[in-house]
Amino acid sequence: MERYICAIVLILAAMVIALRNLSKSYETAEGRLEVLRGIDLDLGAGDSVALTGESGSGKSTLLHLVAGLDRPDSGEIVVGGRDISKLDDRGRAAYRRTEVGLVFQQFNLVPSLDVAANLAFHAKLAGRHDPAWENELVERLGIGPLLTRYPEQLSSGQQQRVAIGRTLAARPGLVLADEPTGNLDETNGDAVLELMLSLSKGTGSTLLMATHSQRLADRLDRQLHLRSGKIT
Protein backbone atom coordinates (compact mmCIF):
# COMPACT_ATOMS: atom_id res chain seq x y z
CA MET A 1 0.00 0.00 0.00
CA GLU A 2 2.77 2.21 0.87
CA ARG A 3 4.44 1.66 -2.45
CA TYR A 4 1.21 2.07 -4.28
CA ILE A 5 0.60 5.49 -2.82
CA CYS A 6 4.19 6.41 -3.49
CA ALA A 7 3.72 5.50 -7.13
CA ILE A 8 0.63 7.64 -7.40
CA VAL A 9 2.34 10.53 -5.75
CA LEU A 10 5.21 10.09 -8.15
CA ILE A 11 2.92 10.13 -11.13
CA LEU A 12 1.07 13.13 -9.83
CA ALA A 13 4.27 14.91 -9.18
CA ALA A 14 5.38 14.14 -12.64
CA MET A 15 2.11 15.34 -14.12
CA VAL A 16 3.38 18.64 -15.14
CA ILE A 17 2.29 19.58 -18.60
CA ALA A 18 4.22 21.85 -20.87
CA LEU A 19 3.12 22.76 -24.39
CA ARG A 20 5.79 24.39 -26.51
CA ASN A 21 5.07 26.22 -29.74
CA LEU A 22 2.30 23.79 -30.62
CA SER A 23 0.83 24.11 -34.09
CA LYS A 24 -1.94 22.18 -35.78
CA SER A 25 -3.63 22.63 -39.10
CA TYR A 26 -6.21 20.70 -41.07
CA GLU A 27 -6.43 20.13 -44.78
CA THR A 28 -9.87 21.22 -45.89
CA ALA A 29 -11.53 21.60 -49.20
CA GLU A 30 -10.94 25.35 -49.05
CA GLY A 31 -7.27 24.84 -48.30
CA ARG A 32 -5.09 24.69 -45.27
CA LEU A 33 -6.80 25.67 -42.06
CA GLU A 34 -4.35 26.71 -39.34
CA VAL A 35 -6.19 26.03 -36.09
CA LEU A 36 -3.38 26.29 -33.55
CA ARG A 37 -0.42 28.56 -34.29
CA GLY A 38 2.28 28.16 -31.66
CA ILE A 39 0.62 27.46 -28.35
CA ASP A 40 2.76 27.72 -25.24
CA LEU A 41 1.24 26.54 -22.00
CA ASP A 42 2.32 25.19 -18.62
CA LEU A 43 0.05 23.35 -16.19
CA GLY A 44 1.02 22.33 -12.72
CA ALA A 45 -0.05 19.17 -10.97
CA GLY A 46 -3.52 19.48 -9.46
CA ASP A 47 -4.34 22.60 -11.44
CA SER A 48 -7.84 23.04 -12.79
CA VAL A 49 -7.86 25.12 -15.92
CA ALA A 50 -10.71 26.29 -18.11
CA LEU A 51 -10.18 26.68 -21.84
CA THR A 52 -12.53 29.11 -23.49
CA GLY A 53 -12.87 30.51 -26.96
CA GLU A 54 -15.31 30.90 -29.77
CA SER A 55 -16.70 27.95 -31.50
CA GLY A 56 -14.11 26.74 -33.98
CA SER A 57 -11.27 28.38 -32.16
CA GLY A 58 -9.53 25.05 -31.63
CA LYS A 59 -10.40 24.04 -28.05
CA SER A 60 -11.23 20.48 -28.96
CA THR A 61 -8.21 20.28 -31.20
CA LEU A 62 -5.96 21.30 -28.38
CA LEU A 63 -7.51 18.80 -25.99
CA HIS A 64 -7.15 16.00 -28.52
CA LEU A 65 -3.49 16.81 -28.95
CA VAL A 66 -2.87 16.81 -25.23
CA ALA A 67 -4.79 13.52 -24.93
CA GLY A 68 -2.54 11.92 -27.51
CA LEU A 69 -5.49 11.29 -29.76
CA ASP A 70 -3.93 13.26 -32.58
CA ARG A 71 -0.49 14.55 -33.52
CA PRO A 72 0.55 18.17 -33.80
CA ASP A 73 2.20 19.54 -36.93
CA SER A 74 5.03 20.91 -34.86
CA GLY A 75 5.87 21.72 -31.30
CA GLU A 76 6.16 19.66 -28.15
CA ILE A 77 3.68 18.25 -25.66
CA VAL A 78 5.71 17.32 -22.66
CA VAL A 79 3.80 15.41 -20.04
CA GLY A 80 5.67 14.06 -17.03
CA GLY A 81 8.92 14.75 -18.75
CA ARG A 82 8.10 12.95 -22.04
CA ASP A 83 7.21 14.50 -25.34
CA ILE A 84 4.09 12.51 -26.12
CA SER A 85 3.90 13.88 -29.62
CA LYS A 86 7.01 11.85 -30.40
CA LEU A 87 5.44 8.62 -29.17
CA ASP A 88 4.25 6.01 -31.62
CA ASP A 89 0.66 4.78 -31.77
CA ARG A 90 1.29 2.17 -29.13
CA GLY A 91 3.08 4.57 -26.81
CA ARG A 92 0.31 7.14 -27.08
CA ALA A 93 -2.28 4.44 -26.42
CA ALA A 94 -0.43 3.44 -23.25
CA TYR A 95 -0.26 7.10 -22.26
CA ARG A 96 -4.01 7.50 -22.73
CA ARG A 97 -4.65 4.28 -20.89
CA THR A 98 -2.63 5.04 -17.81
CA GLU A 99 -2.33 8.78 -17.51
CA VAL A 100 -5.27 10.50 -19.16
CA GLY A 101 -8.93 10.55 -18.44
CA LEU A 102 -11.27 11.91 -21.09
CA VAL A 103 -14.77 13.26 -20.82
CA PHE A 104 -16.37 14.34 -24.05
CA GLN A 105 -19.59 16.11 -24.74
CA GLN A 106 -21.17 12.84 -25.78
CA PHE A 107 -20.52 9.23 -26.76
CA ASN A 108 -18.16 8.65 -23.90
CA LEU A 109 -19.41 5.24 -22.95
CA VAL A 110 -18.83 1.86 -24.49
CA PRO A 111 -22.28 1.00 -25.83
CA SER A 112 -21.95 -2.72 -25.33
CA LEU A 113 -21.08 -2.54 -21.65
CA ASP A 114 -23.52 -1.79 -18.87
CA VAL A 115 -22.93 1.12 -16.50
CA ALA A 116 -21.03 -0.95 -13.95
CA ALA A 117 -18.72 -2.38 -16.57
CA ASN A 118 -18.22 1.03 -18.16
CA LEU A 119 -17.34 2.44 -14.81
CA ALA A 120 -14.65 -0.15 -14.23
CA PHE A 121 -13.49 -0.30 -17.82
CA HIS A 122 -10.83 2.38 -17.92
CA ALA A 123 -9.54 1.53 -14.47
CA LYS A 124 -9.10 -2.07 -15.47
CA LEU A 125 -7.35 -1.08 -18.68
CA ALA A 126 -5.07 1.17 -16.68
CA GLY A 127 -4.45 -1.61 -14.18
CA ARG A 128 -5.88 0.44 -11.32
CA HIS A 129 -9.16 -1.35 -10.70
CA ASP A 130 -10.28 -0.41 -7.20
CA PRO A 131 -13.81 -1.58 -6.34
CA ALA A 132 -13.96 0.40 -3.13
CA TRP A 133 -13.12 3.63 -4.93
CA GLU A 134 -15.61 2.80 -7.64
CA ASN A 135 -18.31 2.22 -5.02
CA GLU A 136 -17.56 5.58 -3.52
CA LEU A 137 -17.80 7.20 -6.92
CA VAL A 138 -21.09 5.49 -7.61
CA GLU A 139 -22.42 6.81 -4.39
CA ARG A 140 -21.23 10.32 -4.91
CA LEU A 141 -22.41 10.44 -8.50
CA GLY A 142 -25.76 8.97 -7.51
CA ILE A 143 -25.74 6.38 -10.25
CA GLY A 144 -26.32 3.37 -8.02
CA PRO A 145 -29.71 2.54 -9.55
CA LEU A 146 -28.28 2.69 -13.07
CA LEU A 147 -25.51 0.12 -12.73
CA THR A 148 -27.14 -2.62 -14.77
CA ARG A 149 -28.40 -0.33 -17.51
CA TYR A 150 -26.82 0.17 -20.88
CA PRO A 151 -25.66 3.59 -22.08
CA GLU A 152 -28.45 3.98 -24.59
CA GLN A 153 -30.90 3.57 -21.74
CA LEU A 154 -29.53 6.63 -19.93
CA SER A 155 -30.30 10.30 -20.26
CA SER A 156 -27.53 12.65 -21.37
CA GLY A 157 -26.91 13.87 -17.81
CA GLN A 158 -26.77 10.33 -16.49
CA GLN A 159 -24.38 9.40 -19.28
CA GLN A 160 -22.11 12.28 -18.43
CA ARG A 161 -22.10 11.34 -14.78
CA VAL A 162 -21.12 7.80 -15.64
CA ALA A 163 -18.45 9.16 -17.97
CA ILE A 164 -16.99 11.26 -15.18
CA GLY A 165 -17.11 8.32 -12.83
CA ARG A 166 -15.47 6.12 -15.46
CA THR A 167 -12.69 8.69 -15.90
CA LEU A 168 -12.06 9.25 -12.23
CA ALA A 169 -12.26 5.57 -11.38
CA ALA A 170 -8.97 5.16 -13.19
CA ARG A 171 -7.41 7.96 -11.11
CA PRO A 172 -5.74 9.59 -14.11
CA GLY A 173 -3.12 12.21 -13.52
CA LEU A 174 -4.69 14.38 -16.18
CA VAL A 175 -8.41 14.80 -16.79
CA LEU A 176 -9.35 16.36 -20.11
CA ALA A 177 -12.94 17.41 -20.48
CA ASP A 178 -14.43 18.79 -23.67
CA GLU A 179 -17.64 20.60 -22.83
CA PRO A 180 -18.72 17.83 -20.49
CA THR A 181 -21.91 19.63 -19.61
CA GLY A 182 -22.70 21.02 -23.02
CA ASN A 183 -25.69 18.74 -23.43
CA LEU A 184 -27.07 19.44 -19.97
CA ASP A 185 -29.30 22.14 -18.57
CA GLU A 186 -27.81 24.64 -16.21
CA THR A 187 -28.74 22.93 -12.94
CA ASN A 188 -27.60 19.56 -14.09
CA GLY A 189 -24.51 21.03 -15.69
CA ASP A 190 -23.55 22.75 -12.48
CA ALA A 191 -24.07 19.62 -10.46
CA VAL A 192 -21.96 17.55 -12.84
CA LEU A 193 -19.21 20.13 -12.87
CA GLU A 194 -19.27 20.38 -9.11
CA LEU A 195 -18.82 16.65 -8.87
CA MET A 196 -16.01 16.61 -11.34
CA LEU A 197 -14.20 19.41 -9.64
CA SER A 198 -14.43 17.99 -6.19
CA LEU A 199 -13.58 14.50 -7.30
CA SER A 200 -10.59 15.53 -9.36
CA LYS A 201 -9.43 17.66 -6.48
CA GLY A 202 -9.82 14.56 -4.31
CA THR A 203 -7.61 12.47 -6.59
CA GLY A 204 -5.24 15.32 -7.12
CA SER A 205 -5.71 15.22 -10.90
CA THR A 206 -4.89 18.06 -13.19
CA LEU A 207 -8.06 19.21 -15.02
CA LEU A 208 -8.15 20.88 -18.37
CA MET A 209 -11.69 21.65 -19.47
CA ALA A 210 -12.91 23.28 -22.65
CA THR A 211 -16.11 25.21 -22.22
CA HIS A 212 -18.18 27.98 -23.73
CA SER A 213 -19.63 28.95 -20.43
CA GLN A 214 -17.96 31.80 -18.62
CA ARG A 215 -19.94 30.88 -15.53
CA LEU A 216 -18.39 27.44 -15.46
CA ALA A 217 -14.97 28.76 -16.36
CA ASP A 218 -15.09 31.06 -13.41
CA ARG A 219 -15.22 28.19 -11.01
CA LEU A 220 -11.87 26.79 -12.07
CA ASP A 221 -8.45 27.84 -10.79
CA ARG A 222 -7.33 29.39 -14.04
CA GLN A 223 -8.78 30.45 -17.37
CA LEU A 224 -7.15 30.41 -20.75
CA HIS A 225 -8.64 31.95 -23.81
CA LEU A 226 -8.04 30.72 -27.36
CA ARG A 227 -8.16 33.19 -30.18
CA SER A 228 -6.67 33.01 -33.64
CA GLY A 229 -4.74 29.93 -32.71
CA LYS A 230 -3.04 31.56 -29.76
CA ILE A 231 -3.62 31.57 -26.05
CA THR A 232 -4.37 35.02 -24.79
Partner: peptide, 10 residues
Amino acid sequence: PVWAMGVTRR
Protein backbone atom coordinates in the same frame (compact mmCIF):
# COMPACT_ATOMS: atom_id res chain seq x y z
CA PRO B 1 -14.38 5.30 -26.72
CA VAL B 2 -12.26 2.18 -26.32
CA TRP B 3 -9.63 3.67 -28.57
CA ALA B 4 -9.78 6.96 -26.69
CA MET B 5 -9.17 5.09 -23.50
CA GLY B 6 -5.91 3.79 -24.78
CA VAL B 7 -6.36 0.69 -26.89
CA THR B 8 -4.33 0.87 -30.08
CA ARG B 9 -6.02 0.68 -33.43
CA ARG B 10 -3.97 -2.42 -34.15
